[in-house]
């Protein structure tokens, strides 16, 4: 039968087990992942199975690294993510977290848009670091995304979004994610993209400030839009914006993008 070992197709005897395959191809591997799942006990293999063999501490050869980076993905997910084109508007608390998660998912083509620089009050919730204060957010995020997944194409735009330029900037993307701080700009971006980029799936967020229970954060669908949030808790004097709740909303947005790309979203079809 044919199986995949670290993404390379190999022919093994019918009835071979995972640990037999390890002994043959990489006897010193201490991590064995079968079809996305880390296994601790031996299991029989079947035709088409994907097995990843990793030796802890070892830098794998370049032609194996990309497949090993996604070896914990559910089988079949990475091929679709690699073909996806996803844009993120705003690289603050929402956008920087969304970009990190989608880079880890292996999204093949991402557009990242922000006009601002990293400043100290960002770091309580945004994926930047003290030594990046003063850098353009597009430049600071580039460093992190390249470290997470160097096998994708990233486009960075250092622009301020307006009614005049928004639809043009985002029109070629499968998914457009609104990740802005200011309410008026959030609504503007979603209006412009939903009205003018009619093939795209638009994901926004509204209501993620403070530290109220995260279980009240939900998804509201309308047309080809999905909006994540509790729709109530706004950032205002007396109610701050902090990492846990912002990251929950950001990752709900990112997961909606993943579900859409995989064709798994009932409410909005690809």
């Amino acid at each position: 039968m044919n199986i995949f070992v670290n993404e390379k197709e190999r022919t093994v005897e019918k009835g071979a087990t995972a640990f037999e395959v390890r002994s043959f191809f990489k006897a010193d591997a201490d991590v064995v992942i079968l079809n996305g799942h880390l296994i601790g006990t031996d299991m029989p293999l079947k035709n088409g199975d994907k097995i990843s063999l990793i030796k802890k501490g070892e830098i794998p050869p370049a032609d194996e690294l990309e497949s090993l980076l996604v070896s914990r993905h559910t089988p079949g997910v990475h091929d679709k993510m690699k073909k996806a084109r996803i844009a993120v508007a705003g690289l603050g608390g929402l956008g920087s977290n969304i970009a990190m998660s989608l880079a880890r998912m292996g999204v093949g083509d991402m557009l990242l848009v922000d006009y601002d620089v990293v400043e100290p009050s960002n770091i309580n919730r945004q994926q930047y670091f003290v030594d990046q204060i003063g850098m353009k957010k597009t430049d600071a995020l580039r460093v992190s995304l390249e470290r997470i997944n160097p096998y994708a194409s990233y486009t960075y735009k250092d622009v301020f979004l307006t009614e005049e330029n928004t639809a043009d900037i985002f029109k070629d993307y499968d998914v457009i994610i609104e990740a802005i701080d200011k309410a008026e700009t959030k609504a503007m971006i979603i209006r412009e993209c939903a009205a003018k980029c009619r093939e795209s799936f638009i994901i926004g967020a509204s209501g993620l400030a403070g530290y109220a229970d995260t279980s009240v954060i939900s998804v509201r669908f309308a047309g080809r839009m999905a909006i994540v949030g509790d729709f109530v808790n706004e950032a205002k004097p007396g109610q701050g914006l902090m990492a846990p709740r912002v990251a929950v909303a950001a990752n709900m947005q990112a997961n909606l993008a993943v579900r859409y790309i995989l064709g798994d979203l009932q409410e909005v079809k690809k």
Binding site: L94, K182, F231
Partner: peptide, 24 residues
């Protein structure tokens, strides 16, 4: 937004108004 003032809402229309609050 430029269409809000001259779009009439007719009998049977389905209207969704999604309100945005700040934070991101």
């Amino acid at each position: 937004r430029d269409k809000y003032a001259d779009t009439l809402v007719n009998n049977g229309d389905k209207v969704e108004l999604i309100n945005f609050v700040g934070g991101g």
